[in-house]
Amino acid sequence: MKKRYALFPGCLMPTEQYAYELSLRETLPLLGVELVDVEGFSCCGEPMKSVNQLLTLYLSARNLAIAQKHHLDIYVPCAMCHLALTECQHILEKNPAMKERINGMLAAEELTYTEKTHLVHTVDLLHDVIGIQTIKEHVKKPLHGLKIAAHYGCHILRPKEIGRPDDSENPQKIETILKALGAEPVNYPQKLDCCGAPLLANLPESALTKTGQKLQAIQEQQIQGLVDVCPWCHKMFDSRQTKAGETVAVKLDVPVVYLTQLLGIAFGIPPEKLGLELNLSPVEKLQQEAKP
């Protein structure tokens, strides 16, 4: 069965985290997912939550309404966006007065939020919708011997009560996917620690210290690589890794890849199609260390 989703790109992925977009556009169609590009999406609103929550709610509802106009379920690769849209649905379903009010504002763009839409993130799309069996069938170059740690990102795990892609305290879906790719998922005590990204806007030094502390712990545990599923987390762990190292006075050398990139490698897709040259961490080490 063909699965069709509107791809909700958000802000960060389409404006700088190109590797995520390249790799998901490359791998997901192979697994039977049709990604539909929809015109007119905006920021999900989550980055503005500290400034004005009503604005956040409005922006989320606006994006949901656009997808609803096309009668499409939504694939949200960014953890922050996924939380914003999920929370918005949760609020509007529970609060009809707010729904009416938001719809009053959406009228300016001839939009209406109608009903709950099915939202998926990379993790549950791969694990629950596509399924481990299908992923296994596509593995051409299993990643045997690679010890990989998973970083889920806070926003796809919590708060549990509104429904998140994986368990809030013991998420295992990425690990299961890693196993399907032939890699060896490594458990580590810092697994649920925050990447620091939400402080980038106002306390970038502290944000990077958070990143540095987590990466340092990973480096000390002889883990060969870190896999993530959020453009914000990736921006911290990969794009800013060198700077993060400076905050903890350590030379960091941890390969960090998007899960979709790792998927592509295991599927035998050429690295350039997966945007691997865009990763600033030493990802070539990963390719070298995988025993075919």
Binding site: E39, F41, L106
Partner: peptide, 19 residues
């Protein structure tokens, strides 16, 4: 990569937020 998805009519988009 395909073109960036963003609000098509900036004026209408801003009118919404103005509310």
């Amino acid at each position: 990569l395909p073109p960036l998805s963003k609000p098509v009519d900036a004026a209408k988009f801003q009118a919404g937020i103005m509310k």
